[in-house]
């Protein structure tokens, strides 16, 4: 009886292992040395897009495990036109630049805000989506302006452009309770903290904030008129992959022209919000 149980368990685990092997997408690991220039990519026949698949609505998974999202669909269309196979590699957002520079992925394409600091490390495509760092509060909080947040707690996602935008405003940050924003792993956690009343406001990408608010009910939140600045999303490449950047830019431009980009936007946002 005992032996049977253990045997059964071992069998189960072994099956799991093999099932897992079969189910896993064969994402080929790219040796860093080979990655020089666009021609090398064409020779290889595929590109690897790094994304955090926890980023709804830009990149996430359906209940069936299918990878979807605005950025995912856009990337698929771009590389279909470039006749390159596209593979998506889930990464942890905090490791994104490390993944890029070590050659594990060829680009970061997942609501990646263009900032001056990042521009020093990566080569960006032309911006394709406008974004704001919005401030979200609860209706009953009575908070209407940035000034109302003096001495209060503000949440955001760690390693995000929201975090960067908050701390860039030194006077605002210094006036916060604790002198710093509270950084969470995901925006979802920041929202839950806001609902629990432990933080008074959160700062997030408008694109993502609107998705959450849409899911949770528009009446439950207030987005302040003031914001932490307008930004734009771009695709991040390794510096030196300028030909790839150029090809992606040209293709994106063509997709804006012929309405393909607008179509993808309508699927996820209900309207065309792609940069003209």
């Amino acid at each position: 009886m005992k032996k049977m149980m253990i045997l059964g368990l071992v069998a189960l685990m072994t099956m799991g292992v093999f099932a897992g092997c079969a189910a896993e997408k064969p994402v080929t690991e790219a040796p860093a040395a080979e990655l020089t220039g666009y021609e090398a990519l064409v020779e290889r026949g595929y590109v690897i897009v790094g994304l955090d698949d926890t980023f709804a609505p830009l990149g996430f998974r359906t209940t069936d495990g299918e990878l979807v999202g605005f950025d995912v669909d856009l990337a698929k269309e771009v590389f279909a036109r470039l006749e390159l196979e596209v593979q998506f590699q889930p990464i942890d957002w905090s490791m994104k630049e490390t993944e890029l520079n070590s050659g594990n992925i060829d680009m970061i394409w997942n609501g990646y805000t263009i900032t001056p600091e990042r521009e020093e490390k990566v080569a960006f495509s032309k911006p394709y989506l406008k974004n704001r760092q919005v401030i979200v509060v609860l209706p009953e909080s009575g908070i209407a302006t940035k000034a109302d947040l003096t001495g209060k707690n503000v949440a955001c996602q760690s390693e995000s452009s929201a975090y960067a935008a908050i701390v860039a405003d030194e006077a605002f940050t210094a006036a916060l309770d604790g002198g710093a924003p509270i950084a969470f792993d995901t925006n979802n956690e920041a929202f839950m903290d806001l609902e629990a009343g432990r933080v008074n406001a959160l700062v997030a990408d408008e694109i993502m904030a609107m998705y959450y608010i849409g899911e949770k009910g528009v009446e439950n939140y207030i987005v302040l008129d003031e914001d932490f600045g307008k930004e734009e999303y771009g695709v991040g490449f390794r510096q030196g992959d300028s030909e790839l950047v150029q090809k992606v830019n040209e293709t994106l431009d063509a997709m804006k022209e012929d309405g393909a980009a607008a179509k993808v936007s309508t699927v996820y946002f209900g309207k065309d919000i792609v940069n003209k």
Binding site: T63, P90, I91, M95, T186, N188, E215
Partner: peptide
């Protein structure tokens, strides 16, 4: 193993939590 982007149980749950905005 989430740090290497592998979707083990907890990360799989996080993906769903973020998508559906629920705990």
């Amino acid at each position: 193993v989430y740090i290497l982007g592998l979707s083990e149980l907890l990360r799989a749950a996080k993906i769903a939590a973020n998508r559906d905005v629920t705990l």
